Computed example of a mutant assay.
Amino acid sequence: MQTVTSSDVAHMLLSVRNRKSTPPEHVHDSLVPRSIDDAYAIQDEVAQHLGPIGGWKVGSETPQSEPFCAPIHTSTIFEDGATLPPDLCFHRGVEAEIAYRFAHALPPRAQEWTREEVLDAIGTIHPAIELLDTRFAKPGSQHKFLHTADQQSHGALIVGPGVAEWRKFTPVTERVVLTINNQVVADHVGGNSAGDPLRMLVWLANHASRRKIGIAAGSIVTTGSTTGTIFVGHDTEVVADFPAIGSVRAHLA
Rank of each mutant, 00 (worst) to 15 (best):
H207R: 14
S225H: 05
Q64C: 01
S153V: 05
V239F: 02
C89A: 11
Q64T: 15
N182Q: 14
F242P: 07
K138M: 07
A47R: 09
Q43V: 02
E112F: 10
H126K: 05
F90P: 00
G51M: 05
N181P: 01
V94L: 12
T226V: 12
R175N: 02
P71A: 12
D44G: 14
N18M: 09
T83H: 08
G218T: 05
D235A: 14
H251Q: 08
R135V: 03
G54R: 10
T124D: 14
S6C: 13
T236A: 11
S65T: 14
V176C: 15
F231C: 05
I42S: 11
R211H: 13
V118Y: 07
F102E: 06
H143T: 00
R210W: 04
Y100Q: 05
V32M: 11
H207L: 13
V232K: 07
A99G: 11
E117C: 04
A149Y: 04
D241Y: 02
R167F: 00
A121Y: 07
A186Q: 11
R19E: 14
Q48P: 00
A82K: 04
S153H: 00
I72H: 06
L178R: 05
D150H: 06
K20S: 14
R115W: 03
E97G: 05
V232T: 13
L88D: 01
P171W: 03
V32P: 13
I180K: 06
T179W: 04
T222V: 15
H73Y: 10
N192F: 00
T170H: 12
P24I: 05
V32D: 13
A205P: 10
V9H: 08
V58L: 10
H234C: 06
H147T: 08
V202M: 11
G155T: 03
V184I: 15
E112W: 09
T173Y: 07
I158T: 12
T173V: 04
G55K: 05
P127L: 01
G123E: 09
G55W: 06
D8C: 08
G162V: 00
Q43F: 13
P171Q: 01
V163G: 01
A156K: 05
G228A: 08
M1D: 12
A47F: 04
G59C: 07
S225A: 14
V27D: 13
Q151T: 00
Q64A: 15
V202S: 12
A47N: 15
A105K: 06
K144Y: 12
G218N: 10
R249Y: 01
L252E: 04
H104E: 14
S153Y: 01
R210P: 06
I158G: 10
W113H: 15
T22H: 14
I53F: 10
S7I: 03
G195M: 04
Q151W: 06
R210D: 12
S247C: 09
R210E: 12
T134H: 07
A105C: 01
R167N: 03
F78P: 00
R175F: 02
V238W: 09
Q64F: 11
H73F: 13
Y40S: 12
N192T: 00
G81W: 03
T62D: 07
